[in-house]
Design a protein around this nucleic acid. Structure first.
Lengths: 344, 344
DNA sequence: CTGTTAGCGCTTTCAG
DNA sequence: CTGAAAGCGCTAACAG
């Protein structure tokens, strides 16, 4: 490994090996290990020179030329959400053997960032939170890399779409708990904000629909906004459980809320599931659970399936016209409900 | 926004605006908004054409030319660690106003990935886990972008180094608790593995040193490996707290272990801090705490300080010879120790 | 103030 | 089987 000056270029390697740039390129990047790559002797010389110089191909130049970058980028909107991290882990595990790097975009300006780049595949989650989301995705699809969009309101075109609505799950959870309780409450992080409302019905909306569909009263007071961080949720849960309108059945809009509620119940001496049943919409990462599994609605093998789609797109050069992948939610019974594994 | 064909190139824009490529480039990328950019009329034409065509510069081409990419990449080694995510959040907040994107590299092949690329700044955490780490960092530093390395065994050269050893903190924590207890235990995730040992002393090693320095017995049995995920840690804590050698003072090697222990203590009816004192090495993200603040040793404003260094490097074109940033750990009293805010 | 020109480092025909 | 040359899209000198 040479230790002076700027990084070695292919031309440097070629010169040192006494061959032309083209040959060097052929040996190093073309099917080097496989068939028909050059005379064994030349190969050795080139390889040796590259090694000595610590040569490493400039990815910008290569991408510029080929239109591919050897990378997958996950535009998750936010980095704080553990859901995205689980996905990232699954993608990484599948991408690594294919020699694809996995990157997470940490900010929310996915459109600006992705427009300029040429990744093998870009995955976009926050299509549905702005009005222009779908249009932007279509625009990106004109570029070179593959696109996978996580959305409930866009049709596949030259990109794949993963559609995974929690709405049926919320309805099912409501029916399931309502069958055993006079009243079912809903716990969410942030109150419904009519201003910055996403362009699809939120889980809280689904809950309200489910309640009125079941013939229950307006139910606005059944929606509890507990705050976004865990301490807030925990303290809210404590007050709630020790207050006058203590619930006996709660649907939590995320796994972490369910976790906070579960711990608060233990703290308050309330027995779960006997005196309080909890269902989470979306699973709780197993390594975050402390008091045993929480009953939840979720998608079987979500991360593995999504990772397959994303990596598949990345590997698919010039391909498929775009598929719609619809994910269905099922009930996974845990220790926070009384029921066994029978369906909704 | 044009909706057909491949992405518009600068040449397309120039042609449509009736100017040359150079002029278009000048207007669009050179100090467009600021002074001396071209005649108002041309500017308008070019801007208009770009708008109509939905032009967006190809970042690969630009980077190839300029050697800068408009991005910061954080090579965290793993995505699962919340520490890295907090850092990512802090970096993103500072980078966004400067028009820098923040990326997280999701896999552990940082060297391979970074060698090929030209980011404005790369941050590498796992320098100390392999023997060749430092050499690789030096090699990267020959490239175009800035580098910030998180390491306790490398000297700054043409890159910055952040050195933040937990060792003194472990010693201080030991002394602090030992002053009030006959025996102080240590809780860690993974047992000390002499095989794949990192190339620096681990926190568990520091604990053993601290014990023998205080004149205490070997203490190997004071090190408790509780497993890596939270459920395991929680269950381990439960067994431990309800078993025969129940501790009265514990140092936890990470914040999440302290959290599990705290919850387990509550569960077992053990009063914290009266019957059990807990000190965490490293802080617990505030949004993960449920039972109130945990006493810990940590670095004041770690994430903000690190983010400043990283973004600073990214903005610093052709610059500083490399600085060593040494981070000192302090005690932050919370609800899991009996002491107030007095020093160690 | 705008246009011409020369590359950045790489891959890829196309000849030899 | 190897070399010469073109060009990906963009920017930065230098002319005009």
């Amino acid at each position: 490994m040479n230790s002076t000056g700027r990084p070695a270029t292919l031309a440097d390697v070629a010169k040192r090996a006494g061959v032309s740039v083209a040959t060097a390129s052929f040996v190093l990047s073309g099917r080097g290990g496989a068939r028909s790559s050059g005379s064994p002797e030349t190969k050795a010389k080139v390889r040796g020179a590259a090694e000595e110089l610590g040569y490493v191909p400039n990815r910008n130049a290569r991408s510029l030329r080929t239109g591919r970058s050897g990378g997958i980028v996950l535009a998750l909107g936010t980095v704080e959400d553990p859901w995205g991290l689980s996905l990232a882990g699954a993608v990484r595990d599948r991408a690594l053997p294919e020699d694809l790097s996995t990157l997470i975009l940490g900010d929310e300006r996915w459109f600006e960032f992705l427009s300029g780049s040429a990744f093998d595949c870009s995955f976009v989650t926050s299509v549905d939170v702005t009005p222009e989301g779908p249009e932007q995705v279509r625009h990106l699809a004109r570029g070179q890399g593959g696109i996978v969009a996580f959305s409930e309101r866009i049709q596949p075109e030259r990109f794949d779409v993963i559609s995974s609505s929690a709405q049926p799950a919320v309805h099912a959870a409501y029916r399931r708990l309502r069958a055993r309780h006079d009243s079912v409450a809903f716990m969410t992080g942030r109150a419904i904000d009519p201003e910055r409302r996403p362009y699809y019905p939120s889980r809280a909306h689904a809950f309200l629909d489910a309640a009125s569909e079941a013939g229950d009263a307006p139910g606005d007071d059944l929606v509890h906004a507990s705050g976004t961080d865990r301490q807030q949720s925990f303290e809210y849960s404590q007050r709630w459980l020790e207050g006058p309108d203590r619930p006996t059945a709660v649907i939590c809009s995320t796994g972490y809320l369910a976790l906070a509620l579960q711990v608060a119940a233990m703290h308050a001496g309330i027995s779960v599931p006997d005196d309080l049943e909890i269902i989470s919409i979306g699973d709780v990462p197993s390594d975050a659970q402390m008091l045993g599994p929480i009953s939840y609605y979720g998608v079987q093998d979500v991360f593995a399936r999504m990772a397959d789609i994303i990596v598949g797109r990345a590997l698919d050069r010039e391909g498929s016209p775009g598929r719609l992948h619809r994910f269905d939610w099922e009930f996974f019974p845990g220790g926070t409900t009384v029921d066994g594994a029978d369906g909704a």
